[in-house]
Nucleic acid binder design. Structure first.
Lengths: 137, 137
DNA sequence: TCGTTACTGCAAGTGGATTGCACTTACCAT
DNA sequence: ATGGTAAGTGCAATCCACTTGCAGTAACGA
């Protein structure tokens, strides 16, 4: 079941704008904010409204096709394709804003410890590092 | 050197409103958003503008007297007193929004691994869990 | 190809946070 | 103790990410 099928299976439709949003996300090397995504679309001469970008991202997130992340101190949200990629975190350069994937997640074993400590049932976690990238050091 | 001295030593002044902001933060059991802080001040009949709350928080953060945190999916920032408290993280209830401290930080040893993997120089990290608190389960 | 209804664009609205500016006040030098 | 100056404050306006209302458009199953 490819992306197209997944969308259709949920009663949603594969529209011109939705295809364009997916295409830009698929080609991006790093998670995009709605505004950046919108700028990319404009660059590719796609006629689309920023509101439509927002609404498509909400839909795609609900369908589990994209992941939403919020990086510290950014004041905006970012999205990346989920598409077979495994759970991971990010590091962001404090100087140029560059965002790079981290392949590790050291937290899975921690859940039990935290549940014992707090009596919460742990759902998600968000982990993010910031620092200075090679170019900015 | 107490809080008062620290503020004075930096060329800042200890004003009526700044004292009130600090007092509310000191008495809070959990990190407060500017709006919550403002509401607390109003409840205590402190005459203050919301803008002044914001500006004081910026100043206190710059002085290292308070820590700013951004919890995932909240869309607002929170502050807590630093005051001798050691580095820690938080867990937030997805249902009622309750925020509880975690005493552990499993990430210190990870810095070297990440620096090797990414060639970044790691500065800060932000880690946050969410789940369901005992009352909301 | 037609009808339903998801989707879109435009405009307006929210809410958290910031900025400009004139007035006020803390506090140090005298 | 007091007067000058620069930090701090309040108010209004603004910014910016994001959301909502609504009328018109288009995907796609029948």
């Amino acid at each position: 079941m490819d992306v197209n099928d997944e969308i259709r299976a949920s009663g949603k439709r594969m529209t011109r704008t939705r295809r364009a949003v997916l295409s830009v996300l698929e080609q991006s090397q790093y998670p995009l904010s709605p505004t950046e995504l919108y700028a990319q679309l404009k660059k590719h001469k796609v006629a689309i409204d920023l509101v439509t970008v927002y609404r498509n991202l909400v839909t795609l997130k609900e369908l589990g096709l994209v992941t939403q992340l919020e990086l510290h101190q950014e004041g905006q949200v970012r999205y990346e394709m989920r598409e077979g990629r495994q759970h991971h975190h990010h590091i962001r350069c404090k100087s140029c804003g560059r965002i790079v994937d981290l392949l590790l997640c050291p937290l899975k074993k921690l859940t039990a410890v935290i549940e014992k400590e707090t009596r919460f049932v742990v759902g998600d976690h968000s982990l993010e590092f910031s620092g200075w990238c090679p170019r900015c050091q």
